[in-house]
């Protein structure tokens, strides 16, 4: 990259990393909804608490993936520096 100096590119990468972790909003909302319905289900049927909790955690961990992709992009931009 001849035209821009490294500081400019690194600054833009940092802004991009900050934008990439906005992806965390989605999993936050999704996990909250899952936890809410989990609490609802435990309230209706306290006997099945173990099954409900494990199913909820499994679903939440799967929903977390998209946020983690955003985190990975941020990490790549900040530490691997693909554009410099």
């Amino acid at each position: 990259m001849g035209e821009f100096n490294d500081a400019f590119i690194f600054g833009c990468s940092a802004i991009g990393a900050g934008l990439a972790v906005i992806a965390g909003i989605g999993p936050g909302v999704g996990q909250g909804i899952a936890a809410g319905y989990g609490a609802n289900a435990v309230g209706r049927n306290p006997g099945a608490k173990g099954d409900i909790t494990s199913t909820m955690l499994l679903g939440q961990a799967v929903a977390e993936t998209t946020g983690l992709y955003g985190l990975l992009i941020a990490m790549l931009l900040l530490f691997v520096k693909p554009f410099t």
């Binding site: 961990a61 799967v62 977390e64 993936t65 983690l68 992709y69 985190l71 990975l72 990490m75």
Partner: peptide, 16 residues
């Protein structure tokens, strides 16, 4: 890919 990235990113985020 999604299986391995999920595990990797979770552990990496904790490490970082």
């Amino acid at each position: 890919i999604s299986l391995s990235l999920r595990l990797f990113a979770n552990v990496l985020s904790g490490t970082v």
